[in-house]
Simulated assay, not measured.
Amino acid sequence: MTANTEPALKPERPFFSSGPTAKHKGWALSKLQTGSLGRSHRSNVGKARLKHAIDLSKELLGIPEDYLVGIMPGSDTGALECAMWTMLHPDRPATVAAWESFGNVWIQDAVKQLKLPRLTTLDADYGEIPDLASIPQGDDVVFTWNGTTSGAKIPDTDWLEADREGVTINDATSAIFAMEMDWPKLDATTYSWQKVMGSEAQHGMLILSPKAVERIENTDPVWPLPKLFRLKKGDKLNRAIFEGATINTPSMLATEDYILALEWAKSIGGRKAMFERADANAKIVTDWIEATPWLRNMVPDPAQRTNTGVCFVFQGDYYDSLTEEEQAKVPGRIAKMLEDRDVGYDFNGYRDAPPSLRIWCGGTVEQEDLKRLLPWIEWAYGRLQA
């Protein structure tokens, strides 16, 4: 194939967005159960389906029996901020670590909203990870397991001691169902349905360890607490929330879509199969990046590279000859060329990231579709140089 010859094959499913991500192959609206639609979420039917979503999540993720799992409003953001608002306290030291856009939101929450007086912030450029080993074990810590907009993940949890004094709040939205969670070291873990599972957006999950429950019950927030963050009934955690009695009205249609995705994941082998699919998908893309001289993985350290949203930047003589303004337009021009041809949707880099492309490789994406996409990116880049 020359630079001016279009590839022969297009992806059958050209969905490469990093959120909401692709539905699994074989998904159809007709496969959703509809018995809960038009019913109150407080009805026996509604609560049973919400509880089923919770129980399936706990089973597939291998969450310890004594951990609680609840459905929260506001996607991963709502769940993560609920954990911060209910577990952090001005009297306690805290560290918030970030290395991309969403982690920096949690820093801004801690600095500008909660105004924690004993706060340490750790940040790093896109593609890098800060020195996590420097975080004191007595600090409460907020971190993002996998940088959705940079493709940089934590390489391990060695920097967290199992019996650390502080609580650990983990934003795992683009990691969970693709990477194994070290549950004994995690006190509050959050994610959203629309990331790795490819389900509908707006609902988030909050997973609490016994230590997290104790912290919530023993903490009286000094800041205003919106109703959507109120996890306690009196002085105790309202455990009904973690049995399907959500704080506010959830979408039962979105719930049924999430259940369908969970049942599909279970049918193919559970989380281990999802990990393997993401690893295989990411290898296709990362191997291609390594073999393409005009591309570079945004994350230089292979141990810190994600297996979900793989991010890469441009380099080489042609790219370097462009002005900074022209360079910034390259990823978007490629993405638009391929979207116009129904080859690939929504794989431009994040708006706050360096000019880049970002291809989602989570378990709902098929290998063959990735293999078909990559020659088209080569073709489009060739077109820019013509």
Rank of each mutant, 00 (worst) to 15 (best):
residue 4 N to P: 00
residue 184 P to R: 04
residue 291 A to C: 06
residue 311 C to N: 15
residue 67 Y to F: 10
residue 25 K to T: 14
residue 125 D to A: 15
residue 243 E to W: 04
residue 315 Q to H: 09
residue 320 D to L: 11
residue 17 S to R: 05
residue 138 G to Q: 11
residue 247 I to P: 02
residue 127 G to M: 09
residue 317 D to N: 13
residue 43 S to K: 06
residue 77 T to V: 14
residue 1 M to G: 12
residue 30 S to L: 12
residue 370 L to C: 00
residue 340 D to I: 02
residue 190 T to G: 10
residue 176 I to S: 01
residue 265 A to T: 06
residue 94 A to P: 01
residue 134 S to W: 08
residue 360 W to D: 13
residue 158 D to I: 08
residue 210 P to R: 09
residue 117 P to T: 11
residue 376 W to Q: 00
residue 9 L to V: 11
residue 255 T to F: 03
residue 71 I to H: 02
residue 85 W to A: 08
residue 386 A to S: 13
residue 175 A to G: 14
residue 97 A to G: 03
residue 137 Q to V: 03
residue 175 A to S: 15
residue 274 M to Q: 10
residue 320 D to Y: 07
residue 209 S to Y: 07
residue 288 W to R: 07
residue 318 Y to D: 06
residue 310 V to Y: 09
residue 156 D to W: 04
residue 363 G to K: 05
residue 249 T to R: 15
residue 18 S to P: 10
residue 99 W to Y: 05
residue 40 S to Y: 13
residue 55 D to N: 13
residue 257 D to T: 12
residue 261 A to I: 06
residue 302 P to R: 01
residue 300 P to H: 04
residue 35 G to Q: 14
residue 103 G to T: 02
residue 353 A to I: 00
residue 230 R to Q: 15
residue 178 A to M: 11
residue 229 F to Y: 15
residue 306 T to V: 09
residue 327 Q to I: 00
residue 81 E to P: 07
residue 304 Q to Y: 01
residue 384 L to W: 06
residue 301 D to F: 04
residue 34 T to A: 11
residue 204 G to R: 08
residue 266 K to P: 03
residue 274 M to K: 03
residue 74 G to L: 04
residue 238 N to Y: 07
residue 35 G to M: 07
residue 349 G to H: 05
residue 137 Q to K: 12
residue 104 N to E: 15
residue 91 D to Y: 10
residue 157 T to M: 11
residue 72 M to D: 02
residue 195 K to G: 00
residue 27 W to G: 00
residue 138 G to W: 06
residue 299 V to S: 06
residue 297 N to M: 10
residue 93 P to E: 06
residue 233 K to A: 12
residue 119 L to N: 00
residue 97 A to C: 10
residue 214 E to I: 08
residue 178 A to S: 15
residue 210 P to Y: 05
residue 312 F to K: 06
residue 99 W to Q: 02
residue 133 A to Q: 14
residue 277 R to I: 03
residue 7 P to L: 02
